[in-house]
Nucleic acid binder design. Structure first.
Lengths: 109, 109
DNA sequence: AATATAAGCAACCGTTTGGTTTCGCAAATG
DNA sequence: CATTTGCGAAACCAAACGGTTGCTTATATT
């Protein structure tokens, strides 16, 4: 069983849960109300997210509040860095290209 | 069948392929050499990535060169924006907090 | 003390995934 | 022109996924 953020965000319902929870901590029941599936199905998603350490729990009486572990989102961000470098360099090339044709236009005038 | 970047990057082999290809266009055989699986297995991954529009093909004779569609990586980046806003605001709070205790320390002297 | 509520757990089921092997086809090579 | 090479497609399989229903446990409520 793979358990990482990449697998965590692969499911659209889990992405929606993450987005919900990012704003404020919520209980499984409150979360389940937002979806068309059963509480148990949501509970399974919460379990996966918790195992991936994307979510953290806080027990309050018989309720459990789930909230987002922002650090995990940063892991994703870090993975994207390698591509960010590439697309920035391509934009630099675009900038250079634009500067070049702009210069050529001036020369035409 | 879900076909989006989130599902595309869920598999570790596919992430490795994406990282490989980001540097330079490659053929299926060249890619497969980098992994312990069969060419056909890699070919399946390439198919998924192509369907998700993460990769683009360029036929040259009987060879097919696959290269990265950077735009799709940006989609991921855009999705992350919502969390970036949150973690930046938390850092702002931390800054404010640090400034506050620093000020208090000065007052103590 | 009896009941209602919140939530996790287990068993089950159809579908998807990731891999394999086998095959077919088109482009190079001798 | 026969053979090799690069690649995709199909059939098959075990494992994982996402959902359901039914059950148990612990905390509130009456």
């Amino acid at each position: 069983m793979r358990r990482d953020i990449f697998q965590a965000i692969a499911d659209p319902t889990r992405r929606a849960i993450i987005a919900l929870i990012a704003i404020q901590a919520m209980t499984p029941n409150a979360i389940a109300e937002q979806f068309d599936t059963s509480r148990q199905a949501v509970s399974k998603h919460l379990k996966v997210l918790h195992e991936c350490e994307v979510l953290k729990q806080e027990q309050k009486g018989r309720e459990i509040f789930y909230s987002l572990e922002l650090e995990k989102m940063k892991e994703l961000d870090n993975w994207l860095d390698q591509f960010r470098k590439i697309w920035e360099s391509r934009f630099d090339n675009l900038d250079a290209y634009l500067a070049k044709i702009q210069k050529e236009r001036k020369n035409d005038k």
